[in-house]
């Protein structure tokens, strides 16, 4: 069985933002691709009204090329 997950130069348009959680708040944000907890800097991808956050651009690309298809 083979599945093709890689598409060269595939990137998701997005932007970096910092988690606005204040120092005394305990809010946990998970990467929508790998599931790791994101400390502060999030790569945000908007798709219509849907907004997804990732720990890194490469993780957003992995979501696009693999995780979304797997779901």
């Amino acid at each position: 069985m083979q599945i093709k997950t890689r598409t060269p130069n595939q990137r998701l348009a997005g932007y970096w933002r910092e988690n606005q959680t204040r120092w005394h708040e305990q809010i946990l944000v998970y990467c929508n691709s790998c599931g790791v907890l994101i400390p502060k800097k999030q790569w945000v991808v908007e798709h219509g009204k849907e907004q997804r956050v990732f720990c890194a651009e490469v993780c957003a690309a992995l979501y696009q090329r693999y995780r979304r298809k797997a779901k």
């Binding site: 998970y30 691709s33 790998c34 599931g35 992995l62 995780r67």
Partner: peptide
């Protein structure tokens, strides 16, 4: 090169 995917 090793990517790990999990569900929280």
């Amino acid at each position: 090169p090793i990517r790990v995917l999990t569900e929280p």
